[in-house]
């Protein structure tokens, strides 16, 4: 696999060895703060990708580079779009592999920069055999890779993918209920959701009031819940 030269990653590989996130990992509030951070090792922006304000309570540090996120069940696509919105708006690229149904209008409303979103079509005859190579190539060059496999992912593929994401500092987001051999670092799901707006023919869909549950491994092991409008009446995920 020919990788572009000069892009060795200096990311921490083992999340559990780092301990809990120090407070300085949040966004800088002043220039002096930003400068101080720049002097003390890698800036926060290099180890995490920013997330939209609605997810600030769930992911106070943002999306840790090199990690794997799983979103499943109803609302999986909305959650995935919410996760990538802020990062794409600040210059990261994202690719969607194997989900031709992803709503682009919704992505634009959520705040995803469509200029930096690529959709990879896996419907070709040989595509399913090359799934591993395709996703691996994307992980090498893009910060965010959304994968929606149609069937069981092989353990070797999953392991290679996770290792490569860690090495390159990309985030792999698994969409949907396809079985994976391992658990992702972070799992997001809707724990109950109600749509507001329509009433027996009157009105229209306005917003979904949903509880988002985050669980995971390592530092994400403690379950966190937050109530969100996913999306609100403008199509944007926000706090109620």
């Amino acid at each position: 696999m020919g990788l572009p030269a000069g892009h060795a990653s200096t990311l921490p590989d083992n999340p559990s060895a780092e301990g809990p996130a120090p407070a300085r990992r949040s966004h800088p509030h002043s220039l002096a703060e930003a400068a101080r951070r720049a002097r003390t090792g890698a800036p926060a922006g290099e180890r995490t990708l920013p997330v939209s304000p609605a997810l600030a309570d769930l992911l106070p540090d943002g999306l840790r580079r090199g990690s794997t996120v799983g979103v499943a069940g109803p609302g999986a696509r909305s959650l995935a779009l919410t996760l990538i919105a802020e990062a794409t708006a600040t210059g990261s690229w994202a690719a969607v592999v194997g989900d031709p149904d992803l709503g682009l209008a919704a992505a634009a409303e959520v705040g995803v920069a469509l200029a930096r979103l690529a959709v990879v079509d896996l419907s070709g005859p040989t595509a399913s055999r090359q799934w591993g190579a395709v996703v691996s190539a994307l992980v090498g060059g893009l910060d965010l890779v959304l994968v929606a496999p149609r069937r069981q992912v092989r353990a070797a593929d999953a392991r290679r993918l996770a290792a490569r994401a860690r090495e390159r500092g990309s985030v792999v987001i698994r969409i949907g209920d396809a079985p994976w051999p391992d658990r992702p670092d972070l799992e997001l799901a809707l724990g109950g959701a109600t749509w507001e707006g329509p009433e027996d023919g009157y009105g229209r869909l306005r917003c979904r009031r949903a509880e988002v549950v985050a669980t995971g491994r390592g530092r994400n092991a403690r379950e966190r819940r937050v109530l969100l409008l996913l999306p609100d009446a403008r199509g944007v995920p926000s706090l109620p």
Binding site: A108, L114, A118, D121, G124, A127, A133
Partner: peptide, 16 residues
């Protein structure tokens, strides 16, 4: 993305 096009063929990577 160019590498993916090489793997899957022209037209497999699309942009909105």
């Amino acid at each position: 993305l160019a590498r993916v096009v090489g793997l899957l063929g022209e037209g497999s990577v699309r942009l909105p």
